[in-house]
Simulated scan of single mutants.
Amino acid sequence: MITKAIQNAFNTAQRKNWDHTYWAFDIHGTIVYPNYSATKIPTTFYPYAKECLQLISGRKDVVMILYTCSYPHEIEQYLKFFKEQGIHFRFVNQNPEVVNEAYGFYEQKFYFNVLFEDKSGFDPEQDWEKIYTMLKNNKTEACILPEMPAFIN
């Protein structure tokens, strides 16, 4: 479950003394309901998605990456739309801050700690509320989150 991935990312960051972690977010079917239109981007958020992304945007220990197959002109529209909502992505489909090292080759797959993607099991109808509750209960910027068995399956 996504809350376990978040828990693991924060725990790893503290153990390795990292300042932040990287979270990648798909748009369609994850943040907003798809509208299947070729001319207008969808703007209807899943419950708790907007509030959750606003919380995450305010954290100094999370770098947000937009992870999308949208066309470049749509990405511009999305970035503007999200910015108007107080949601800020640092990168789009890349993470130039993590380069190739002995432990990983990142030229064809960028590095992230947590992936929000409906095709990988993220359930926007249920998971956003759990994440929102988890983050609201954790007021500090970078710390090990307490174990939350109610959220972990």
Rank of each mutant, 00 (worst) to 15 (best):
F105L: 12
R90F: 02
G104P: 00
H88E: 12
L115E: 03
E107G: 03
F82D: 07
M64I: 03
S70G: 12
N113H: 14
Q85E: 14
R90V: 04
F81Q: 07
Y111F: 15
Y71D: 09
Q94G: 05
Y111I: 00
F110R: 01
F82C: 10
F81I: 06
F81Y: 14
H88T: 12
L79S: 09
V92I: 09
V63I: 15
I65E: 04
I75E: 11
P96T: 05
L66Y: 07
G104E: 08
V99E: 14
I65T: 08
N100R: 09
F116N: 00
P96A: 04
F110N: 01
K80R: 12
M64R: 02
H73M: 14
H73E: 15
Y67K: 08
E76N: 12
F82M: 11
E76G: 08
F112I: 00
V63W: 00
V92D: 06
F89E: 01
N113P: 00
D61Y: 07
N93D: 13
T68Y: 13
V99A: 13
K60D: 15
Q108T: 12
Q77P: 02
G104D: 03
K109Q: 13
E97G: 01
K80A: 14
K83R: 15
A102E: 13
V99Y: 10
F105H: 12
Y103L: 11
F91N: 01
P72H: 06
Y67S: 15
A102G: 09
G104T: 03
F105G: 11
V92F: 03
Q108P: 00
V63A: 01
Q77L: 13
F112D: 02
F81C: 10
F82R: 04
H73Y: 15
K109S: 12
F91T: 00
F105K: 10
Q77H: 09
S70N: 13
V99T: 09
